[in-house]
């Protein structure tokens, strides 16, 4: 039906896009092209006489860089872990909060708290909660008898990253809840009424109506969240600074450290480009899927 609207020289859809395109060009696209260009240069800003075009030199250097690969691996763990944690908790919360009960509005507002707490506070608060000398989490676990002594969560190479991931789950799950709730409410109630008349049980309704109707929004939310989570570094930086050692280094964190601590903008840009490539790969699969889902609505 939509094809009837298509005309060869229809400028209307473009005019709707124009404001968004104009500002993104200035505020994201130009800076991005500039930074992308830097990735082909040896560009350590305090060595002005050594600035030169090295083409793919930085890209080769990254592939031989141990820290790059550690950060790469951590980034994959980080994305997969944080997204699934946030999704599961966010989904369950949304389903619960979609039901009718007297304190629903209150509960809906309260679960937003993690999301509206500024990152600096979130990070410092969790760092303090995890503290190995007087942290609340250790205190509770010891009282419950799960631990027999305080454990240095953030100072241990194998627990630092998972601990931060848990903190990020806390911060980000309300986002999933809000988006999924909005999606749930957009599902026409008639569909359920019809299904009820046809004798469907709640399980069947969930899998045959709720989930398929929610799919486009769910996929988009996961997709956008993946990109956001992959790029988030403030919480990691405040909680561990990427440590201990390289245990919680991710690609954006490594790129940030190279850029603003080492002033090596060339190499930092290269790492950022690799991160983008990694995300493009992850997301390509996804986008194909989403566009397909979209087709079904056409």
């Amino acid at each position: 039906m939509i094809r009837a609207l298509r005309r060869k020289t229809d400028l209307y859809p473009y005019s709707l896009l124009l404001p968004a395109l104009t500002v993104t060009t200035f505020i994201i696209f130009i800076p991005l092209v500039y930074t992308f260009g830097l990735s082909f240069f040896n560009y350590v800003i305090w060595k002005p006489h050594e600035i030169k075009f090295v083409f793919l030199g930085n890209y080769k250097k990254a592939l031989e860089d141990e820290v790059f690969w550690i950060s790469f691996r951590n980034t994959l763990i980080w994305i997969a872990g944080v997204i699934s944690l946030q999704l599961v908790l966010g989904f369950i919360t949304a389903l619960l909060l979609n039901r009718q009960f007297f304190w629903r509005s209150l509960a809906r507002s309260l679960i937003l708290i993690p999301w509206v707490t500024p990152s600096v506070i979130t990070a410092l608060m969790w760092r303090w909660l995890y503290d190995g000398n007087s942290g609340l989490i250790n205190d509770i676990l010891v009282r419950l008898g799960i631990l027999d002594r305080y454990f240095p969560w953030l100072a241990n190479g194998s627990t630092a990253l998972p601990a931060i991931m848990f903190a990020l789950m806390w911060q980000g799950f309300p986002f999933f809840t809000v988006m999924i709730l909005a999606g749930l409410q957009a599902i026409p109630t008639e569909l359920y009424e019809v299904a009820k008349v046809d004798g469907a049980n709640p399980m069947q309704m969930f899998f045959h109506i709720t989930l398929p109707m929610l799919m486009p929004i769910l996929l988009t939310t996961i997709l956008l969240r993946t990109i956001w989570v992959a790029n988030s570094l403030d919480i990691i930086f405040i909680m561990t600074g990427g440590g201990p050692g390289y245990a919680s280094h991710t690609l954006p964190l490594y790129s940030y450290i190279r850029a603003y601590k080492g002033l090596d903008f060339g190499y930092a840009s290269t790492i950022a480009v690799y991160l983008t490539l990694l995300l493009v790969m992850i997301v390509t699969m996804y986008v194909i899927r989403i566009l397909k889902t979209e087709e079904r609505f056409r």
Binding site: N133, P152, A155
Partner: peptide, 8 residues
């Protein structure tokens, strides 16, 4: 020094 030293 406490076990938390690396991240203190």
């Amino acid at each position: 020094s406490p076990p938390t030293t690396p991240n203190d």
